[in-house]
Design a protein around this nucleic acid. Structure first.
Lengths: 154, 154
DNA sequence: CTCCTATGATTGACACGTCAACCACAGGGG
DNA sequence: CCCCTGTGGTTGACGTGTCAATCATAGGAG
């Protein structure tokens, strides 16, 4: 056990840079297409997806935050913007006066409906179609390994 | 060849979501550590790295943009913020009066020096150490395949 | 019942990114 | 020489994300 572990080698660093930059470009492209085709951001899409699948198309704010994996502060800012555009509305919680309930608005449901096929098509074109089945499986395993490692060191 | 190709299957979509969310968490964690340990953002780091490697520690704005892979507008905003913090300075170009030259400032060089080891350590801990050598190689190949596909459909 | 702490959520300040508009100058045709 | 188009770069507006501070209420200890 040497004390401070080694730094990444040149080839490891090359993989890192290539990997992180490419995933960033991928995210930007997918987001840009979604924005262009439907007027929704990927954040909007995640929120609308979670609400669409929720019973009664409504969720308590903290449940929604857990569902999309965001901090409450981020969700609060995003919901404020979505409310301004009439995609969602907010109500008080019946039994816990601290709570807020987020409700899918008609315009939000419509926007989500219109967005889902174009978005899934973009995912296929830019991600699934770029990889062989073996690479796709490997991508899944890499994501799982990274996630487990991140969770354990948090 | 059926006309409109199929949408992603359930398992393909699961991989997509896992992959894109995990890489985002990874990016956020690395950026957060860098910010916390050194006061630099990953953007700052990229710019300072490019300038450190440039002859005379100075680059024309458009070359710097190409080097870090950013749009000119993004670079301009970022340089304005970095100039405010005395990490870089900007000068006019000698022969092309339209041009701007970005110069690494002493504080920028010092901040970069201080940041490199902690940053590389974080990359090793959160990325390299999470993967087997085979997975690391696969990650490189996946990035290459995605990048090529993105370039061709742009 | 009265504090006391923990939790749900919002806010303000600020960094970051994109888009479109803009300004200034370079480098030619005429 | 004059215009005209293209290029280098900046700016403003706005959406997005993080952090720290704030506020109100829930829920339990005493």
């Amino acid at each position: 056990m040497p004390g401070p572990r080694r730094l990444p080698s040149r080839s490891e660093l090359d993989v890192w840079r290539d990997f992180i930059e490419t995933t960033e470009v991928l995210r930007t492209q997918i987001g840009g297409r979604l924005q262009h085709d439907t007027g929704l951001s990927t954040g909007d899409y995640s929120v609308l997806l979670a609400l669409s699948e929720a019973p009664d198309r409504r969720l308590r704010s903290s449940e929604l935050a857990a569902g999309v994996g965001w901090e409450r502060s981020r969700l609060s800012h995003h919901l404020a913007r979505m409310e301004r555009r009439d995609l969602i509305t907010r109500e008080g919680h019946a039994t816990d006066s601290r709570g807020a309930v987020v409700v899918l608005a008609p315009a939000g449901a419509a926007a989500f409906q219109a967005a889902t096929v174009p978005h899934l098509r973009a995912v296929r074109e830019l991600f699934v179609d770029a990889l062989t089945p073996a690479q796709l499986a490997a991508a899944g395993e890499i994501a799982t390994a990274l996630r487990r490692h991140l969770d354990s060191s948090a």
